[in-house]
Amino acid sequence: MPAGTLYRGREGMWSWVAHRVTGVLIFFFLFVHVLDTALVRVSPEAYDDVVATYKTPIVALLEYGLVAAILFHALNGLRVIAVDFWSKGPRYQKQMLWTVMGIWVVLMAGSVYPVLGHAARELFGS
């Protein structure tokens, strides 16, 4: 560890870094998402045109990334709440992080087909 830093490494710091990074990314998406949804007040065509780009394979991959970021932020957020409010939370913070990562991996594996299935059919034919 370099001198003069508060960073301690390991599970605690890296989950905190990942929580920040995913949080900022989700917030920027949210801003764009409210703007694109506002197009329903312009015309059905304007809205459908923009949503059509959301159905392309490349954006489908971004949507999978969005799901990944949101699921991590949600699960780790519940862990942060447990650390803050559960009397044994700080003692089990590492175990809870690995539980979060386990649930996250399972949910991400389960999300492959629902989120990316249509992109695969478009790219490789159905």
Binding site: Y54, K55, V67, I70, S111, G117
Partner: peptide
Amino acid sequence: VLGHLLIQLFLDGGVSKIGFA
């Protein structure tokens, strides 16, 4: 948010069904 994601991206064809209607 997870309910929203489930409806918009997972159920009934996922993102393919989304449109003005």
